[in-house]
Amino acid sequence: MESLIISQMAVSGALMGLVYALIAYGFQLTFSTSKSINFGQGELVMLSAFFSLTLLDWGVPYWLMVPGGLLFGVFLGLAVERAGVRLALEQKSEGWILLTIIIGLLGFSAAENIWGRDDRPFPTPISADALQFFGVNVTPLEISVAIGVFALMGLIELFKRKTLLGKAFEAVSADRDAAELMGISATRTVMLSYGLSGLVAAMAGILVSPITTVGPTMASALILKAFSVAVVAGLDSGFGVVVIGIFLGALESLTSFYLGSGWREAPGLILLILALAVRPNGVFGKATIRKV
């Protein structure tokens, strides 16, 4: 019984952890190209979820809503880049930190005014009835989260490795000056990275909403965890965020079982502190030494 409980808690937690990983991956995308991240990423998750819910309310079928919601995320990501990041980066200032936070707050108020402060259910055709695997209960909904996370991250990684545009993306991440000298526009690549991170945020919103419901504060807890995951894993390892995300999710879940749910947030914060103290580049991060 005890081992069954542990596996049930670990599996439930790990599936949630994949959502942290996906959002953390969004941080990585923009950090790799521009050394900046969107501190309002959580609001992107939430706004995309609300928008997708509105599409469903308008009668758009679920499978058409998904691309619609994702496109909206891309649009939001681009808007954040244009309004909050580009100028600051051009002036080589850290202004993007404050600007992205402010844009996030604006998005939050907008959501409260447009959609209200209620948590609302997000209908989905995917069943929430439990299936049993070796005594562990998992719902198809949770499995869909795992599939969605892996599919999107896999596609983006494939894009980065197999297409010219994706390779240009990697080139800017690796060496901005060298990439520029090859005729690659770093500005456009940064735009692309923000678009992609908006896409990732929207996906996270669509995947997690049927489980957690949609509300203005739906992502505030998620984003903190995602941030921990990104920092602990390092800001340049897609593989790392998945491993750390799963690990943190499972750990949280077990902590809340053994120590009480009040301690749920503790492992993420402790990991964050440990990572910053011991391995500032992250467990999977590379020290940035440039070979000359």
């Binding site: 010219l164 390779k167 990697e170 690796a174 000056d177 060298a178 000298l181 090859m182 690659i184 000359v292």
Partner: peptide, 29 residues
């Protein structure tokens, strides 16, 4: 670069993590 002014930078600045072939392809971006 698009107008034909191309620099081969000091210290080469090859993209170390990418293959030789990919470096060449990106040169013709």
């Amino acid at each position: 670069v698009a107008a034909g002014l191309v620099q081969v930078p000091e210290g080469r600045l090859v993209l170390a993590g990418m293959s030789v072939r990919e470096n060449l392809e990106l040169g013709a971006y």
